[in-house]
């Protein structure tokens, strides 16, 4: 057995910070990363209306992410603003779930990813909008309105793709099969969640999972799609262990800010 030098063998996750900071980072990073992914479609979507739609959703998510990261930076109290958090952290410091960093693939992959996320997001934000942390609740309430609108859009595309042509059906089913294993992570709760729950920010993951299952099965049934029977769920994003795709995404997202530190226009 080869012994790796300690700096390689040691786990490279960055240690978790204060629970409330971690909690808000997870929320903000989901939106920033998914927003960036969607922005990659700009100029490439199958029809003009969808190009505009995906860019609009991307802008909403990036805007939500910016406000949430600004709050995380303020709670952290180390002088990092939303730009510092978005552009100057490394892969292992990102706390987004694995689902949102998965590549766009074809249009079906993008829509299925969006639908699975939106259906979870509206339930999660709905719970947070009623939490006692006033600033967090306000951001959640605002994002909830936007994500509800996004969910309507992604749901309708699920129906059109799934119950569309044989090819669109097959692609949508393939996307659902491929992305399903990234959905388990959405309902995980760890020590961070337990700690913020003590401050009253409690989200009942099992209740959300049940409602999410209802939404997803309902839409899938109408779309003639079948959620796969997949017992293995991927995990790790919330503590900084990401799939290989996030690093590539960050390279593109961060290069200007890192090449020209402090640049403005």
């Amino acid at each position: 057995m080869t012994t790796l030098p300690p700096d390689v063998a040691a786990p490279r996750e960055t240690p978790l910070g204060a629970p409330i900071v971690e909690f808000v980072l997870r929320l903000g990073d989901d939106r920033l990363v998914l927003g960036h992914r969607l922005s990659e479609w700009c100029g490439h979507a199958p029809v003009l209306e969808e190009d505009i739609a995906l860019a609009n959703v991307a802008l909403d998510l990036i805007g939500q992410g910016a406000a949430m990261l600004a709050l995380a930076g303020k709670l952290e109290g180390r002088g990092r603003d939303e730009d510092a958090l978005a552009y100057l952290r490394d892969e292992r410091e990102f706390r987004n779930c694995l689902l949102v960093e998965q590549p766009n693939g074809d249009f079906a992959v993008t829509i299925v990813r969006q639908f699975l996320f939106d259906a979870w997001s509206v339930l999660y934000l709905d719970a947070l909008a009623r939490c006692p942390h006033a600033e967090l609740a306000a951001l959640a309430a605002r994002a909830l309105k936007e994500d509800t609108y996004h969910l309507r859009h992604s749901s309708q595309w699920m129906l059109r793709l799934g119950d569309g042509t044989p090819e669109s059906h097959e692609r949508a089913q393939r996307a659902l099969d491929a992305l399903w294993r990234f959905t388990g992570e959405l309902f995980e709760a760890d020590a961070v969640d337990a700690a913020v729950a003590k401050q009253g920010i409690a989200v009942d993951r099992e209740a959300i999972r049940a409602r999410w299952n209802d939404i997803v099965s309902d839409v899938a049934r109408r779309a003639t799609l079948t959620p796969p029977d997949e017992p293995h769920m991927a995990s790790g994003g919330r503590t900084g262990r990401h799939s290989e795709h996030l690093g590539h995404l960050l390279a593109e997202m961060q290069i200007v800010a890192r090449s020209h530190p402090g640049a403005g226009w």
């Binding site: 969808e50 505009i52 739609a53 909403d60 609108y149």
Partner: peptide, 9 residues
């Protein structure tokens, strides 16, 4: 309705 998203948010 042609699209739920238009030229501005």
């Amino acid at each position: 309705r042609r699209s739920e998203f238009g030229s501005t948010a």
